[in-house]
Design a protein around this nucleic acid. Sequence first.
DNA 1: TAAGAAAACGCAAAAGTGTTGCGTTTATTA
DNA 2: TAATAAACGCAACACTTTTGCGTTTTCTTA
Lengths: 146, 146
Amino acid sequence: MKKHKEILSRFGINKTQFRIDLLSIFFDCKSSLTTHEIFERFNKKINKVTIYRALKSFEQKGLIHQVPDKNNLKKYSLCNLDSCSPDSHNHQHGHFICYSCDQTFCLDDSTIKIIKTSSGHIVKNYNLILEGYCTDCNSSQTIFQN
Amino acid sequence: MKKHKEILSRFGINKTQFRIDLLSIFFDCKSSLTTHEIFERFNKKINKVTIYRALKSFEQKGLIHQVPDKNNLKKYSLCNLDSCSPDSHNHQHGHFICYSCDQTFCLDDSTIKIIKTSSGHIVKNYNLILEGYCTDCNSSQTIFQN
DNA sequence: TAAGAAAACGCAAAAGTGTTGCGTTTATTA
DNA sequence: TAATAAACGCAACACTTTTGCGTTTTCTTA
């Protein structure tokens, strides 16, 4: 896809077939992926080392970022490509992980508001993981208030 | 210490010397611990497998819980012993990871307020990871507002 | 408090995740 | 299109975590 090639160029990454496909997978999934999941999506036809190196490269160039995972695996999400670059990552969104179907959903900025931390720490970045039951697995609405 | 033995009993864990000492370490620790850090605190005199099994047991019984770590290692913190049990963990608080010293701090409920999710998902637990510079590494105050 | 049952332990081995070195292939550039 | 740089595959390695098994310790209860 032409769009993906342009993005790779813009972020200074060589346009190999694998990296075009990898970016495409991130666009399709719109959430986070483990190296294992990526390996599976390529039907194990690609070397794992290649995946690890591509992910490291994508991350350094500001295309994807790591997301903490429940099982402590390396997991990556597509960045907001307008606000991330090799110089700085800026992520202001959360993820929702379903207990039942294990899917990960992206939550856009407006769903979450973090009012303040009074801890005295200097916050440079944040990452929010919500866990529970997704809309499909439990079709009711909730307002979560702390 | 008598208090620690009582807690182990209450959570249905056998009171071996190692597990008493391990619980004691968690009480002493301000933030969270990796298996490696625990191994070090026992001067490498205890088998690593024993540590892994004790942590798994403590977690299942509701005594400790996993916290996210920058380097994707398993890291554990003491639970709020009044709200966690073998049946359910209730962690609605954030973690702060320091860029400088790599420590993970638990932020209690009052420091963070999540106003709402309008996503339609049912939120059972949440995990908020804040990244930046901790009080010790950069001794100034901050209010973080989104 | 002694005996049987259950849990915890140590050791060795293995599984899983991620990294490094190196020679080859592919893409970029000029 | 030739030289340079980046990406790739393979093999080996490092590290964290898990599993199997026989032994030791703790718990239960009679």
